[in-house]
Amino acid sequence: MNTMSNHSDCIELPLGYYTGINITIDLEKLAEQLSDYLPDLPIDVQGMATHFFVNDECFFIQSKEEIQHIFCGMYSVPIEARTTYFRLKVLEMLIYLYYFDIASETQKTIYARQQVDIIKQIQKRMIEDFERRFTIEELAQQYCISPTVLKTTFKGVYGVSIAAYMKEYRIRQAASMLHKTQKSIGNIALAVGYKSQSKFGAAFKEIYEMSPLEYRNQIKLN
């Protein structure tokens, strides 16, 4: 959530996609009309907004089951019912926010644009040369960033550690090779940066829950 005074004209998505619903609320109009919709719940709209937006900063609430059920129906409701349905759901959301315990929600760290740009350069470098295994120290020195900042900012931007990110990326590339080429499993393991075929097999099974050979055989059957 954010106020219109601190919103961004564009949003940059590190993973390249976004699925969601944006809701914009005119607080002055809402304050005038809310008592008509919720006469038994004296919500102070401006007070609630001030409560969430301390120092005019954004406020993040992590995904929770009680939030998901508010929004999930919005994607599938028939067109003719949307106006009424959306109104009900926004009221439900306001009730949820009215009782929400702000102190219980840990806020995500906001990273400087310069740091994010460097991390994106590092990510691009690693996936373009994914068969090579870069060290944290090597990348930090090359891009003039401390190892600690590199690790924490990468995880903040991409949601996982560098090691976990590259492990999954390599295995996804290997799965594509198993599907599209006739290369041996040993050669594919080498191509994605695994000198040990057993370690490659263990990493592959961790992500796909089957061995590389089982994966290839399943593709053939399909």
Rank of each mutant, 00 (worst) to 15 (best):
T109H: 14
G16K: 06
G47M: 09
M126F: 03
Q115I: 14
A163V: 08
A164T: 13
L213K: 13
I25K: 02
K124F: 04
H69R: 13
K199M: 11
H7K: 14
I162F: 00
N22F: 05
N22E: 11
F53M: 08
I110P: 11
T153Q: 09
L38Q: 06
T109R: 15
I127C: 01
Y17M: 13
E32I: 03
Y208I: 01
L97S: 03
Q107T: 10
I188A: 02
T152D: 12
F59S: 04
E131S: 12
E80F: 11
L213T: 14
Y165I: 04
Y165W: 04
A140H: 04
T19I: 10
H179P: 00
E209Y: 11
G73V: 01
G156M: 01
E57K: 11
Y169E: 03
M74H: 00
I102F: 11
N217K: 14
K108V: 10
I25R: 00
T148P: 04
Q197E: 10
S76R: 12
G20K: 07
E214S: 13
L38M: 07
E209V: 08
K180D: 12
R113K: 15
V192I: 09
G159S: 06
T3S: 14
L221Q: 10
R216Q: 15
R87S: 03
G156S: 11
E66P: 07
K120W: 03
V149M: 15
F154E: 06
R87D: 01
E66R: 13
I188D: 07
Y158R: 06
I43L: 11
L27S: 09
I70C: 03
